[in-house]
């Protein structure tokens, strides 16, 4: 997948994944690396950036089985940002599809 595409939507993907439930870094990393082909290590810097922007919050949770996990959750700002991004994404893909579809038709 094109690098430019990926970096544009990574934030959106992470925020979207956190919309319904809190998730821990490993979970986010393995899901994202499988679906949009990025290395696991790139998710953590991204999470850190989102946290410093105040879009996500993190907390440490002991697991019943296995090592402790750092969970990330969406903040109110993060929810707003997600809505904005989704709107942009939808209108953008819609217009791109129009052009791409229109040309091919």
């Amino acid at each position: 997948m094109n690098v430019q595409f990926k970096k544009g939507v990574l934030d959106l993907c992470v925020l979207a994944m956190l919309k319904d439930s809190d998730r821990y870094g490993y979970e986010l990393a393995s899901t994202l690396s499988e679906t949009i082909m990025i290395s696991d290590g790139t998710v953590y810097p991204l999470l850190r950036k989102l946290a410093s922007d105040g879009l996500v919050a993190s907390y440490l949770q002991e697991s019943q089985s296995g090592p402790p996990r750092k969970y990330y959750s969406l903040t109110v700002m993060g929810q707003k940002k997600l809505e904005e991004l989704l709107e942009d994404w939808n209108s953008f893909t819609a217009s791109v599809n129009k052009i791409v579809g229109g040309e091919s038709a």
Partner: peptide, 22 residues
Amino acid sequence: KLGSPEEVAQYYLGEAVPEYNP
């Protein structure tokens, strides 16, 4: 799967492209 430490460090130190580099 994490990518090289050099690559990961780049993301923290400045800007770099998320690139699949398993």
